[in-house]
Amino acid sequence: MSSSENSNDKVVVGIDRLSDGPMHTQDPFLFCVYHKDQYPAGNGKMEAPRRGNGADFNPNAPYRMYHGEKVPGFPQHPHRGFETITATLDGIIDHTDSMGNAGRYGEGDLQWMTAGKGVVHGEMFPLIHEDKENPTRFFQIWLNLPSKSKMTEPAFVMHWGSETKKVKDEGGADVIVWVGEHKGERTAMKSPPNSWAADPENDVGVVFYSLKPGGKCEIAPAKGGKATNRFLYFVEGENGKQFVSDVNVPKKHGAEIVGDKTAVLENRSETETMDVLLLQGKPIGEPVASHGPFVMNTRQEIMQCFEDYQRTRFGGWPWEKDAMVFPADKPRFSLLNGVEELGK
């Protein structure tokens, strides 16, 4: 941009480097991680050779075990006061929780869980293929709950990839609308009932853009205009060739954009695909107090979270293992309130 350009005309108002773990987010979001792991073929027990020390997040390794001992992933752990949105591109995830719900999902599916007053869940990445590698790629996003909803009943929703709104943009972009809309193409999938996203006025969006070399794609102004926070995560692409409204965004960086103007994504690479995630929403605008898996409004409420979890275990753990996985030949499924549904 030229120095003479009026700041009121700017689309990009900030650029931040993305961390290798949790990335910068804006209200109403709390946390966003881009997981990309090139897991090897499984050993018959869906396991990977052990890496790291039980807290393995090394970005330079071909894959991470996270907190898994033999199967990668996150064995049972508690949450309260927010929601998790797990949006998959590649790979398989096995879910279990303290409500007795479960699922195997991936390859474009999205799982949305409201922790509310408290839930314990596990997310494991079983290596179901023995004859080929098991690459995994997905986003995990934490969406805050307003104070009035922090102690709501937990909820669990599965959205299958076949039901996801996919748009072939004329400029050379493949768009996945997980939450919200792209150029009037709106997902029909619903959020849990007490989510901040349940009210269309809150303008929540989670949209993924994959631009072919030379591709270009417009992001229309947000319905909420200036009141909507918007942030773009450039997670894949060629350094020096990624642009939003003619502003270069370096590799592993993100761009804050204004809500009331059209933003133009452009991939000027001749060889590399550019992948970008958009998170947007009107801010909740309340104090945030967090510690580990708990997000409330005050430190006193955080202390109460720990006391409640120690006393109740948020309903206990009904599964036989902390790191629960299902048989390798079990298809994608959702078990909700005792009713099992196969993936679509």
Rank of each mutant, 00 (worst) to 15 (best):
N134W: 14
D97V: 06
A115G: 12
G116T: 07
Q140E: 14
H121R: 07
L89C: 05
K132A: 14
A115F: 04
F138Q: 13
N134L: 00
K117D: 09
L127S: 10
R137W: 14
I92W: 10
F139R: 05
L110R: 08
T114F: 07
V120G: 11
K117M: 14
A115Q: 08
K132C: 14
W142N: 05
D109F: 03
D109L: 06
G91H: 10
I93Q: 06
L143G: 09
D131W: 07
D97T: 08
G108Q: 06
I128H: 02
P126N: 05
H121S: 05
G108Y: 09
L127E: 07
K117Y: 13
P126G: 09
V119E: 15
I128R: 00
Y105Q: 06
D131F: 02
M124I: 03
G118K: 15
A102P: 14
E133S: 14
R137D: 10
Q140N: 09
W142V: 11
K117A: 15
N101F: 05
P146C: 11
W112Q: 11
T88E: 13
V120L: 04
V120R: 03
W142H: 13
P146T: 02
G118E: 02
P126E: 01
N134Q: 12
F125S: 01
W112T: 10
E123L: 11
D97H: 11
G122D: 08
P146Q: 03
L89Y: 02
F138Y: 12
G100R: 02
D94N: 06
I128L: 01
D109I: 01
T88P: 01
R104G: 13
D94G: 01
T114G: 12
W112P: 09
Q111H: 15
D97A: 02
D90C: 01
M99P: 15
H129D: 15
R137Q: 15
P126R: 04
G100Y: 01
Q111E: 07
I92A: 07
E130R: 05
D90I: 10
G106E: 05
I128S: 06
R104Y: 01
D109V: 03
I93T: 06
W112G: 04
Y105E: 13
I128W: 11
F138W: 02
E123K: 06
V120D: 10
G103A: 11
I128V: 12
G100F: 01
E123G: 04
G103F: 06
D131L: 06
Q111R: 11
G91F: 09
E133M: 10
T136H: 13
G118R: 10
K117Q: 15
S147P: 02
H95R: 12
T96G: 03
G106K: 03
L89G: 00
S147N: 00
G103I: 04
R104H: 12
S147K: 09
Q140P: 06
T96W: 07
Q111T: 09
T88C: 07
E107N: 13
E130Y: 11
N134F: 05
M99D: 11
E107F: 14
G122V: 00
H129F: 08
L145E: 03
I141V: 05
K132S: 15
E133P: 08
W112M: 13
I93F: 02
N101K: 08
Q140R: 12
I128Q: 07
G91V: 04
P135G: 12
E133L: 09
L145T: 09
D94I: 03
L143A: 15
H121L: 12
P146W: 07
E123N: 12
E123Y: 02
G118A: 02
E130P: 11
D90K: 01
P135I: 15
I128M: 01
R104N: 00
T114S: 09
G122T: 05
